[in-house]
């Protein structure tokens, strides 16, 4: 009994599979370009470790410095980063972009590790200078055929969320053990930056 039933079931499955394969491929059931642009923008910052550690370091440093730096730095960074991206898009070259990105991780990690407080203006200036490198390198890498505005929205939002992650982690600063952990994290970021700097200098 079971063998014929199983054979018929197999035939049914085969018939459906053949029919499904014969359905024309170009159904165009979903829009690809727009959503893909948003996803590309969202994913791009988190797929580059050099960008990730520097962005988190901005948040960590902001949390260490407290108000108003904790919100001034995340407000300044996206705007200046986008300005750097705009320079890249209009074809204005900035020399040593990869070195600048690696240096940003070293310095931002270093100031977190050393709990350095240079004052709000200097902190904002330091972050802004590095933001130009990050924007120039990463803000312009739109894959072909995708929406520029949705890529930009995704890229900016994702970078902002990395800052928020850094700030959230930095909230442990209120405890003594947390301050020590933050300084260690700053050291890790700086070490990562040194690794990326070596890679950039060796052309890797």
């Amino acid at each position: 009994m079971s063998a014929p039933r199983s054979g018929r079931a197999g035939l049914r499955g085969l018939a459906l599979a053949v029919a499904a394969l014969a359905v024309p491929a170009g159904l165009s059931a979903h829009e690809g370009g727009s959503v893909a642009g948003l996803l590309s923008g969202l994913l791009h910052p988190v797929t580059g470790l050099d960008h990730v550690i520097a962005m988190i370091a901005v948040g960590l440093w902001g949390a260490q410095l407290g108000k108003p730096a904790v919100w001034v730095l995340p407000v300044v960074f996206p705007m200046v980063m986008a300005f750097g991206g705009m320079l890249g898009l209009i074809g204005l070259p900035i020399p040593g972009v990869e070195i600048g990105i690696a240096a940003s991780a070293i310095l931002l990690g270093g100031v977190v590790a050393g709990e350095v407080n240079p004052g709000l203006r200097l902190a904002g200036l330091l972050v802004a200078v590095f933001a130009i490198f990050h924007g120039h390198a990463h803000g312009t890498e739109l894959p072909d055929g995708q929406s520029g505005i949705l890529y930009s929205i995704g890229f900016v939002a994702s970078t902002g969320l990395l800052h928020a992650s850094g700030i959230a982690i930095g909230l442990i600063h209120r405890w003594d053990w947390g301050r020590r952990v933050l300084r260690v994290l700053g050291g890790v970021v700086a070490a990562g930056g040194a690794w990326f700097l070596l890679q950039a200098l060796s052309g890797g």
Binding site: L89, G139, I149
Partner: peptide
């Protein structure tokens, strides 16, 4: 307080997207 700051951060994101879009349009 921090929720109002989050709104200001969102404003900076709008500026950032606008700057990038100016770049895209001039490219």
């Amino acid at each position: 307080g921090w929720t109002r700051i989050a709104v200001r951060v969102a404003g900076s994101w709008v500026v950032a997207v606008g700057l990038l879009m100016i770049g895209w349009s001039l490219r």
